[in-house]
């Protein structure tokens, strides 16, 4: 399939969905129009609302809050994951001791932590960052741990034969290997940072995309909910695109088959 054809088909899917939505919410095809509109709004209204978001400029503040929470959660979580992942991988005893606790902490549904974080860090951005960190940390941690553990024994023996000391092995062998594993999960971990931010906002905040959606829901403003969701989806797409760019740059050495394609 050519690129142009693929793009045309992708746009076609969106067009078909919106057309179906438009028809059902304007003509009594599957039910009373008024009722349908109450539950699903109409694409025109949603588009108008999104236009208002940007025209009045109110959305920028919320986007910025959600973006900063996402970035902070990703950076802090990734740093923690890298440091602890390296430490555990190089110190099997430490890893063995902490193993059950890591598993326990990872199995815990993070949503239950949200109220506690709000108690600890307040209603500002830090409680949302903390929620994102608990999600990002484990993804990065497991990948870095795996990356350090699964360094090819031949590459390692060869590096040793090149008289590398422990510090040089870390820099030239363990670190790049761990990073490659971490970057292969970049999409997932950035996505989870965003999930942490939005869920945190949704559960209690005064700003951010999650707050916008929650506010609209509180007043049965379905148009607002859908508009917020569309903005959130576009925001996710934009971040994902940036991650792909970063990935292509940082993982240029990878054979294409081993990458994410």
């Amino acid at each position: 399939m050519t690129r142009a054809r693929l793009l045309a088909l992708q746009i076609g899917v969106a067009f078909a969905l919106i057309a179906a939505w438009h028809i059902c919410s304007n003509y009594p095809v599957i039910g009373e129009v008024k009722q349908i509109r109450f539950f699903f709004s109409t694409p025109e209204d949603v588009a108008l609302r999104i236009w208002k978001f940007f025209a009045t400029g109110m959305i920028w503040k919320h986007l910025w809050i959600t973006l900063s929470e996402t970035i902070l959660a990703f950076v802090i979580g990734a740093l923690g994951g890298i440091i602890i992942g390296f430490w555990f991988a190089r110190q099997p005893r430490v890893a063995a001791v902490f193993d059950p606790y890591v598993k326990m902490a990872n199995a815990l549904p993070r949503v239950v932590l949200a109220p506690i974080f709000m108690l600890w860090f307040g209603l500002g951005i830090w409680s949302k960052v903390a929620l994102g960190v608990t999600l990002v940390f484990f993804i990065v941690f497991f990948n870095v741990y795996q990356g350090v553990k699964e360094v090819s024994q031949t590459v390692l023996a060869n590096a040793r034969m090149l008289s590398m000391n422990e510090r040089q092995l870390l820099r030239h062998v363990y670190w790049p290997s761990a990073l490659s594993w971490m970057f292969s999960s970049l999409h997932t971990s950035v996505g989870f940072a965003l999930v942490g931010a939005v869920v945190g906002e949704y559960l209690g905040s005064a700003a951010g995309l999650g707050y916008v959606i929650h506010e609209a829901e509180g007043t049965f403003d379905v148009t607002g909910v859908f508009a917020g969701m569309v903005v959130l989806a576009l925001f996710v797409l934009a971040i994902d695109f940036l991650v792909t760019l970063a990935e292509n740059r940082l993982l240029a050495w990878r054979p294409p088959a081993a990458g994410q394609g």
């Binding site: 090819s152 023996a157 060869n158 590096a159 034969m161 590398m164 000391n165 030239h172 790049p176 050495w253």
Partner: peptide, 26 residues
């Protein structure tokens, strides 16, 4: 002692130039 391995032992994340020069850099 220099060791040439049977399996691929180059660092896959380094270009051939960096793979060779790192032997001196370390």
């Amino acid at each position: 002692a220099g060791y040439l391995f049977q399996q691929d032992a180059l660092m896959p994340w380094k270009t051939s130039l960096d793979n060779v020069s790192v032997a001196l850099e370390v």
